[in-house]
Design a protein around this nucleic acid. Structure first.
Lengths: 253, 253
DNA sequence: CGTCTCTTTGAATGGTATCAAACCCGGTGG
DNA sequence: CCACCGGGTTTGATACCATTCAAAGAGACG
C-alpha cells in the first residue's frame, strides 16, 4: 500500500507501478515483480510537460524511454525537405521511444499535444535491465511487433482507402482506444488539430474537414471544433469496413 | 575452412555461417561466436523452394525463422475481404518471420517469387537461445526496429507521393539493395509482377505500367518486361527526391 | 499455332488537391 | 463592451492525376 495516503493517481505522488491506475495498460504489468521493483527505483515521474513541448527530436540519441500517464502526444518524422509526417498519436499507457532501438537514436520526434505527465526510464538503466532480463526483452519485442502491426494497418488505410473510409477508421480507432482506457468512446475531444489528422491520414486539411462535415450531415457524428460525438456507431463502422474499396486486387501465388 | 572443397555458396553445402558468402549481410554476423556455433547446430538448410511456394501463411503459428540465401520473396497480408496487401520484398540476407514475435503467429504471409534457398531456424530452438542470450535479443530488437523504419518509409511513399515519385523510389530502393549485395545496381530483373509492384506502391497495374513507360520515354530507364536498366540515375534520384511534392496526393477511389 | 496470362496503351470518369474566400473563436487592446 | 486581430476551420469552384473501363499487344507454354 502506498505510504502516502493520497489518491493513487491524481496527485502524481505514488511511487510504485503497483499502485498506478494505468497499471493494466502499462507494459510494467508484463514483467517480473523483481524487474518492476528495479524499475521503480529508476523511474522518474515527470509532470507539467506542456503543450508543444518535445519529448525528443528525430536523430537525437535516446536518453530515456517514457510511458505516458496523462495527456496525449503526437509522433512524427521530418523529411529532408522539412515537411512533417505524422506517424501516430499516443494515449495514456502507451510507451514512447521504441523507435530508438535500432540505432540508439530516435527515428522520429514526439511532441505533447496538451499538458502531459510521464514516467521516464533512463536509457542506461533500461539497457542494463535488458541485458539481464530475457523476459523484459521479450516484452519489448512484443511491443515493437505490435507497433509494427499498427504501422502496417496504417499503411493499408493511408495508401488504399478513400477519404471517408480513412476518417471513419480514424474516429473508430480513437474511440476504441479511449474505451480501453475507460473513457467515453462516444464523446471525446480531438487533442490534435485538423492538420495533424490530415497528415496522419495522408489527406489535406480541407478534405478532412469536408469529410467530417459530410459525416455530420448524414447524422453519423456530431462535430464542433475539436469535440466529437459519435451518434451512429453502426453506420460509422459500416463506412469503415465495406465502403466500396478502390483498387486492391486478388493475390497470385 | 570448409571441409568441402567446392565453391562457398553455389553448392549450398557449407555447414557453417562463417563460410557463408552472405555472412556480411546476415544477422548471424552480429551475435557471439558461441551463439553462432549453436545456430549452426540447429539450422536447416533448405533449397528447391520453388516459385509460388509459401514459407508461411498469416495466422499460422510460427514454426521457424528463416534467412533467405538466394531468390526473392514477397511478404503480404490478406484482409477480411480477401484482398492482398503487399508489404515488402525480401532479398538474400534478409530475415523472414519477425512478424510472429508479438503473438507467436505470423501476421502476414510470405511466398517465393522464384526458386529460393533458405536457412531455417526452428522457433523452439530460437526461443531457447533468446531466453539465454541478451545479445541475441538486442539484435532482434534492432532488426525489428529496422523493419519498423522501413514500414514508416513505405508509409510516406504510399500515402503521399505521386505515381512517378513512388515508382522512382521503388526502383532506386531495389537498386541500392542489389548494390549492397554486390549485384549490378543498374541492370536487374524484377522478380515480382506488375500487380505486386502496384499493390506494394498503392497504385494500379495500369498506372505502374504507364509510369514505367514514361520513364523510358524520358530516357531515364529502359524496361522490357521484367528487365530493367537504369540509364540516368541522377534523373531518377531527382524525381524521387524533389519532384514537386503535393501536400498530399491521393487518387480516385 | 492456339491459348492463357501478363503487360501496355487509349479514352473517359471521378475523387481529391488546389486555390480562394468566408467563417468562427479566443485573445487583445482601445 | 466592442472592434480588431490571427489562427484554425469550413465551404466553394476548378483543375488534375490516378482510376476505371476497354482493348490491343507481347510472352510463355502446351
Amino acid at each position: 500500500m502506498p505510504a502516502t495516503s493520497k489518491g493513487p493517481d491524481h496527485t502524481g505522488q505514488q511511487h510504485s507501478c503497483n499502485d498506478c491506475v494505468l497499471f493494466s495498460l502499462c507494459f510494467a504489468q508484463d514483467i517480473d515483480p523483481e524487474a518492476r521493483e528495479r524499475l521503480n527505483g529508476v523511474i522518474r515521474r515527470r509532470q507539467g510537460v506542456h503543450r508543444s513541448a518535445h519529448l525528443h527530436h528525430g536523430g537525437q540519441s535516446a536518453r530515456q524511454l517514457a510511458v505516458l500517464r496523462s495527456g496525449s502526444i503526437k509522433a512524427y518524422q521530418v523529411s529532408r525537405e522539412g515537411d512533417e509526417l505524422v506517424t501516430g498519436f499516443y494515449l495514456p499507457g502507451d510507451i514512447i521511444g521504441l523507435d530508438a532501438f535500432s540505432t540508439g537514436e530516435h527515428a522520429g520526434s514526439a511532441v505533447a499535444l496538451e499538458e502531459c505527465r510521464l514516467c521516464e526510464i533512463p536509457m542506461a538503466d533500461f539497457n542494463k535491465m535488458l541485458g539481464e532480463s530475457p523476459r523484459l526483452n521479450q516484452v519489448m519485442l512484443r511491443l515493437l511487433a505490435e507497433e509494427m502491426a499498427e504501422a502496417r494497418r496504417l499503411l493499408l488505410v493511408v495508401g488504399r482507402l478513400d477519404a471517408k473510409t480513412r476518417v471513419a477508421l480514424f474516429l473508430l480507432s480513437l474511440s476504441r482506444r479511449l474505451e480501453r482506457r475507460e473513457l467515453d468512446p462516444d464523446l471525446f475531444r480531438l487533442s490534435m488539430d485538423r492538420r495533424d489528422i490530415a497528415n496522419y491520414l495522408g489527406l489535406t486539411i480541407e478534405t478532412v474537414s469536408r469529410t467530417l462535415s459530410t459525416l455530420q450531415r448524414d447524422g453519423i457524428i456530431h462535430v464542433r471544433g475539436k469535440n466529437v460525438r459519435i451518434l451512429e456507431r453502426e453506420a460509422l463502422a459500416a463506412l469503415a469496413q465495406l465502403e466500396d474499396r478502390p483498387r486492391s486486387r486478388q493475390a497470385a501465388g
